[in-house]
Simulated assay, not measured.
Amino acid sequence: MSTSRVAVLVGSLRADSLNRKLAQKLQDQAPEGVTVEIVEGLESLPFYNEDIDGDSVPEAAAHVRRQVEAADRVLAVTPEYNGTMPAVLNNAIDWLSRPYGQGALVAKPFAVVGTTPTPFGGQWAHADTARSAGIAGAVVLEDATVSQTGIDVDVLGDPEVFGRLEAALVKLVEHEVAPSPVA
């Protein structure tokens, strides 16, 4: 596996979030040559507003953009809130999508994993996250999206379940990145 840097957007702000723990376990058990970095500061982003974006972008937004720009790939680890992605993740994607056509997500391989204790395991949130990231210019890997169902499933402790999540990270890392177009 080649050297790769993966930025992780965690869709839950809760300190004891299972999705944050999942992101941390993926970080701790990353394959050799892979650096997994959880993007910090999503809770500090103001709601996206084009009036405050531009020459004097808020430092919180500039910080998150720099973290994602420095990565080769992006992984969203998210629960589902009310049948969709959490607002904090949607807002982060909004900030990362600008400037239009040149945002930090453009041309980056992107995958979505996570868990939520609902009958559908976060499928709607993951589909919405993938769609939004794709519109923002990311290269969404549909075959690397993993939703985990069930309130009684030990996502972190069950080797089979966690193995599916690790496999999604490996697919993301192994995805061939298209060369940048020469201007």
Rank of each mutant, 00 (worst) to 15 (best):
Val153Asn: 10
Phe110Ala: 09
Val170His: 05
Phe47Trp: 14
Pro46Val: 11
Ala167Asp: 06
Val34Asp: 01
Val140Gly: 06
Ser147Glu: 01
Val153Trp: 05
Val36Gly: 06
His175Glu: 04
Leu89Ile: 13
His175Val: 00
Glu59Gln: 15
Pro99Lys: 09
Pro117Arg: 11
Ala133Val: 04
Arg5Cys: 05
Asp72Val: 05
Asp51Trp: 11
Gly54Asp: 09
Pro109Asp: 07
Gly103Asp: 12
Thr3Lys: 12
Tyr48Val: 12
Ala144Ile: 05
Ile135Phe: 06
Ala178Ser: 15
Asp72Tyr: 11
Phe110Cys: 06
Gly83Val: 10
Pro119Tyr: 10
Val39Glu: 04
Ala127Asn: 01
Ala70Phe: 14
Asp16Glu: 15
Gly41Asn: 09
Leu169Lys: 10
Ala130Ser: 12
Ile151Trp: 12
Thr149Gly: 00
Arg5Asn: 15
Tyr81Gln: 13
Glu59Pro: 09
His126Cys: 01
Asn49Phe: 14
Val113Ile: 15
Trp95Ala: 11
Ala127Lys: 01
Val139Trp: 06
Val173Ile: 08
Arg66Met: 13
Leu42Asp: 04
Ala7Met: 13
Thr118Pro: 00
Ala136Thr: 10
Gly157Ile: 09
Ser2Gln: 14
Ala107Val: 07
Ser17Asp: 02
Pro109Arg: 05
Asn90Asp: 15
Asp152Phe: 14
Leu26Phe: 03
Ser132Phe: 05
Asp16Met: 03
Gln102Thr: 14
Val173Asn: 08
Asp128Ala: 07
Val139Tyr: 10
Gly157His: 06
Ala92Leu: 14
Val112Leu: 12
Ser97Val: 08
Asp55Leu: 13
Glu50Asp: 15
Thr116Asp: 09
Lys25Trp: 00
Gly134Glu: 04
Ser56Cys: 05
Thr118Tyr: 02
Asp94Arg: 14
Val39Asp: 01
Asp154Cys: 07
Leu172Phe: 04
Thr129Phe: 04
Gly137Leu: 11
Glu32Tyr: 00
Ser97Tyr: 07
Ala92His: 13
Arg20Tyr: 01
Val57Trp: 03
Val113Thr: 13
Ser56Asn: 14
Val10Ser: 01
Leu42Thr: 03
Gly157Trp: 12
Val34Met: 00
Thr3Gly: 10
Ile52Arg: 07
Ala76Ile: 06
Leu172His: 06
Lys108Leu: 08
Val161Leu: 09
Gln24Lys: 02
Ser17Gln: 03
Thr145Cys: 05
Glu166Met: 13
His126Ser: 13
Val57Asp: 12
Arg73Leu: 10
Pro119Lys: 05
Ala61Tyr: 13
Gly157Ser: 02
Val34Thr: 13
Asn49Ile: 13
Ala62Arg: 15
Arg66Cys: 02
Asn91Asp: 15
Thr129His: 02
Ala71Ile: 07
Val74Gln: 12
Arg14Phe: 09
Ser12His: 09
Thr3His: 12
Ile93Ser: 12
Val170Arg: 14
Ala130Gln: 08
Ala71Asp: 10
Arg164Cys: 02
Lys21Thr: 00
Arg164Thr: 03
Val6Met: 11
Val64Thr: 03
Gln123Ile: 05
Val139Ser: 09
Pro31Ser: 03
Asp143Thr: 09
Val106Ile: 15
Gly150Cys: 03
Val39Ile: 02
Pro46Met: 06
Asp28Pro: 00
Ser12Asn: 07
Leu156Asp: 00
Gly122Met: 01
Lys25Cys: 00
Gln148Pro: 00
Pro46Cys: 06
Thr145Gln: 15
Ser12Cys: 08
Ser12Trp: 07
Gly103Phe: 08
Glu142Tyr: 11
Ala136Ile: 10
Asp53Val: 10
